[in-house]
Design a protein around this nucleic acid. Structure first.
Lengths: 410, 410
DNA sequence: ATACTTAAAAGAACTTGCCTTATTAATTTC
DNA sequence: GAAATTAATAAGGCAAGTTCTTTTAAGTAT
């Protein structure tokens, strides 16, 4: 049975000396990023290149200001000359991350070491892409002028699901007026730097790989509390986006059959219990309104409505955690998002789940941990996106269908 | 918070001319496999290499007997000299796939085009690895003598979950006596060819990529009916194995809270409804015994017990399908395994599920389709494993075993 | 029929990246 | 202080893929 596919099959590109060069520099950068200061000899062993090749690569990266000499190893490990060690040069470049929500825009500027250089939150008036895209353009230009060094790229977080592939950035279908607009291409042309567009959960997951637990792990899940609830998936250090770029849309998975009705038509969707939206509903029942500013000061103890919501959210999140562990067998599951740390911790403390392949006795990492949290989470993840694109070794894929020059002659 | 990881972080290897060479040959082979007959010019476009480079690669692959000239393109596309086209040489090499179950061993021999050259099913007496590993060794040696050409490798399917990483092959924890034994290493040393050990679902998934729908798709799920029920996950053409190699253990995900009790301690596990084991239980209630030989003749219609089971299995599988669509956003979900085609079709026809990101109107592939089915499914998947290792372009990770295109001559 | 255009294949010289080998320098160990 | 060990450097070689040119083969137009 031959079946037409919805998306073109992507195949790997061939390598030539130039592309190998690029690849090798990525490999070394990635190692220095995840390992911290390292000597040439060790880099050569890890990359399985010769020390001489590593030397050349190091020279290049130093010339590009991406790494610096960290000094000589002090603690002697044996005989012989102690090696020079190298590390990422934080000041070598920076990235900008923007979270675009319905009512606000959170902007972050982050250096190569993941250090926050700048942050701001601005309210945005009702406005479609026609006004917002130029606004982002000028905002980035300002930030670029304010910060010395090289801008490596812009990461943009928008609410999914996206229309086509998440990767090279297409407009979301939930923000009105954005459908069908290639946001990444527009901004790339406007700014002349790489632009990556992602949903909040995937951005948070990439953020964790680069700036969080990623130094230790390559296979994990990120459950992200945005307005709804999302899932970011990292397998072998790279995000899993699915065939159409919308993997991780777990909000409408039924965790409690016959539970609360959901606008999607089902009953008992996860999003009805474990999301900021559901918390807002609870507070509204109580006659209260939760503003953005209140979010970071939300107290898990003391407020009975919040406490009840936490209990409820944890109860319905537990089966989801169980599903993720069984389906992915991750090193850990990270709870992250726009809630204050104490709230995420409270949810984690209230989780309960049955047996799974992850329930092994010898695991060293807790099954669920807290990741980046608070208002900046998504924007920090956004800033990590172009960094990830730039320095992570990858298998270059090229689209297959476009290139079949079977019958077209101009 | 720095967290010690359970598994070492795997990093990408650097590329040198030799490794680029290997990579490029894989890329070309992979294209010829998935595209069928193709000319040099087109290969150059797709791989983004120069025609000259492709020529050299083609010459190499022809010399290695892996591809042959398929002839000249007959149908003129325009002016100019018509290109020579090339295709995989089915007779160039073969692989052996073995499914090792508790009571039987299914063996397949498959050529490069995926054509079945030989099959047999043998009952195995009670025996641990000490007797079975040598038995497999001699069996493979016989098959090697019977078939001309080069043996590219051996794939072995065993019931998981595995103790550590699935990839380079470690013993399963469910077959008594196999825990802690590195089956792949043992057989590799015994036979001198690459050996890949996997669970049934992952093997079936790799089988689908190479011999099934893989020509069209790179992102899909395979739900596999073995004794229990398993999931194989293909993302960007490569299997997702999880941190400890046990991704896809969906049998004990609770699909019906408060449902049938399960030995695992939970209630309502998927495996209680949708598995051969549950069918056997149903038949046993009726005083019947289902033998292996009966399996391929199982009739969905006519037998009320089977019909009832199918209905029940589909009802409880539906929420699982929904979960997979939301979590992975796959091109399709393939139902596969040791059931006759008619049974799988019957289950698919009885599935029902609510909205999800996959419920888009413009999709061209049905959300759930039938894949390889019947007694040979797992063994065919097993045979696909070493082929996949050998010809799929990949991002080399540091601790991967070296698998070259060279294979070994008899 | 003949000449022109287009496209594929083949060959020679070039470029580029990593590898190999030899040499020098800086520590620790005995 | 000499031997052992490891790091850094420099020069020459190798093997990919690239570039450029020529040859071959088919269509198209006059």
């Amino acid at each position: 049975m031959v079946m037409p596919a919805d998306t073109p099959r992507r195949t790997a590109r061939g390598k030539n000396p130039n592309r190998s060069r690029e690849h090798n520099r990525r490999v070394v950068l990635d190692l220095l990023r995840s390992q911290g200061r390292t000597g040439r000899r060790e880099l050569a062993e890890l990359t399985q290149l010769t020390p001489q090749a590593v030397t050349n690569i190091i020279d290049d990266l130093i010339a590009a200001d991406l790494i610096v000499i960290a000094g000589r190893r002090r603690i002697a490990r044996g005989r012989g000359q102690p090696p020079h060690e190298y590390e990422i040069n934080p000041a070598g470049a920076f990235t900008i991350g923007i979270e675009l929500a319905v009512t606000r825009m959170v902007t972050t500027v982050v250096d190569l070491a993941g250090e926050l250089l700048h942050r701001d939150v601005t309210a945005i008036a009702e406005g479609g892409p026609a006004t917002l895209l130029p606004a982002i353009g000028t905002r980035v230009a300002q930030l670029r002028a304010d910060h010395p060094g090289r801008l490596m790229g812009l990461g943009l977080v928008m609410p999914g699901p996206f229309e086509i592939e998440g990767f090279s950035g297409v407009g979301p279908t939930t923000l009105p007026g954005w459908a069908g607009i290639d946001v990444a291409a527009d901004l790339r042309d406007r700014l002349g730097v790489p632009v990556v567009v992602e949903n909040d959960a995937n951005a948070a997951a990439v953020g964790e790989t680069l700036l969080g637990v990623g130094k230790e792990m390559t296979d994990f899940c990120v459950v992200y509390f945005g307005t709804g609830i999302g899932l970011g998936l990292i397998s072998e250090g790279r995000p899993v986006r699915g065939a159409f770029g919308n993997a991780g849309e777990i909000g409408h998975i039924v965790v409690t059959p016959g539970g609360r009705p959901c606008p999607c038509g089902q009953h008992g969707c996860l999003e009805r219990y474990a999301s900021l939206h559901s918390l807002r509903e609870r507070l509204a029942d109580d006659g209260r309104v939760l503003s953005v500013d209140d979010l970071d000061t939300l107290a898990p103890e003391g407020d009975p409505v919040v406490a009840a919501w936490l209990e409820d959210a944890a109860a319905h999140l537990s089966p989801m955690i169980s599903i993720l562990e069984n389906v992915f067998d991750p090193q850990t599951i990270i709870l992250s998002g726009g809630l204050p740390p104490a709230c995420l911790d409270a949810i984690i403390a209230r989780l309960s789940f049955g047996p799974s392949v992850a329930r092994r006795s010898d695991r060293m990492v807790p099954p669920v941990i807290r990741g980046q949290s608070g208002l900046l989470t998504a924007a920090l993840g956004a800033a990590a996106l172009p960094l990830h694109e730039a320095i992570t070794p990858r298998l270059d894929l090229s689209d297959l269908q476009e290139t079949t020059l079977k019958g077209s002659a101009p």
